[in-house]
Every structure is written in C-alpha cells, then in structure tokens.
Amino acid sequence: MAAPAIDGWFVTDDDGAVHLLGTRCAGCRTVYFPPQTGFCRNPHCAGEDLTPARLSRRGTVWSYTNACYPPPAPFAAAEPYTPVTLAAVELAEEGIVVLGQVKDLTVDDLHVGMELELTSGALADGPLVWMWGRA
C-alpha cells in the first residue's frame, strides 16, 4: 500500500478500516484533530497529557463543495483534471467537524446531513490521504 501523505493523522487497520488519529486530553477529555500534543488548548485546562485517540469513522455532512479548477501547488492535480470534492463532516461523539476529500462522490451526490464514512485514497502523485466516502 502507498505511504501516507502525512504521518500520524490516520491509520488503516488490517481489515482495511481507516481511522482518523487525533488526541484526547487526559484532563478535560477535549479531542483534537489534527493530533495536538504537548498542551491542551481548552483555556480552562492546564493539561499536558494528550493521548492518541481514534475518531469515529462515521459522521454527517456539515457542508461540502468542490474545486472546479485544479488547486495550485503544493497540491498535485491529476491530468486530465476532474474536480476534487471536499466535505466537512461532523463527528457527533467528538463534537468536531473534519474536512477531507470525498472519494467516488461528486457534489451532486451529497447533501448536508448525509452520513459518510472514512476511507482513504491516493493523491495524484501517489501518497494516501484520508477521504470521506459513501457510508
């Protein structure tokens, strides 16, 4: 399998299930994605113990869009280019909205409130990123 485009932000299990990797503050239980280390950003918490946490794999679409024109570098746009779809997905348990590319769905297939599930996919130049896919 291709290497991840960024280390430590998501993991793929042996069964193929993809999880976002965040952190959780041991003090106040606030969840962070991308993984926050060293200190908790809750102004009421002095916590410095942030432990790795797998985030929920399913969430609902907060909003979505696409990139009709190839995004500029450092994005590696495919040639020929087909619009990249993006979705911001709300994870209920963590109380967080996470942005990601959407795999195999276009804006015409999406609506706000729709359930999506985490997967992964390759950037045009090879490495993998997390992506939201059909639940």
Partner: peptide
C-alpha cells in the same frame, strides 16, 4: 497548516467560502 491544506486537500480559500455558502443554502 496553510501549506498542508493545499497539499493534502487542495482546499483553496474559495473552498471554505463555498462550504459556508452551501451551509446557508441547506439551513
């Protein structure tokens, strides 16, 4: 993060504006 959002997602500034716009339409 400003470099990474382009690298990993191709998320330009208009992409964020569009997320807000779509949300208005839905809400």
């Amino acid at each position: 993060p400003d470099w990474l959002r382009f690298r990993l997602l191709g998320a330009t500034n208009p992409a964020y504006f569009a997320l807000y716009a779509r949300r208005r339409m839905a809400l």
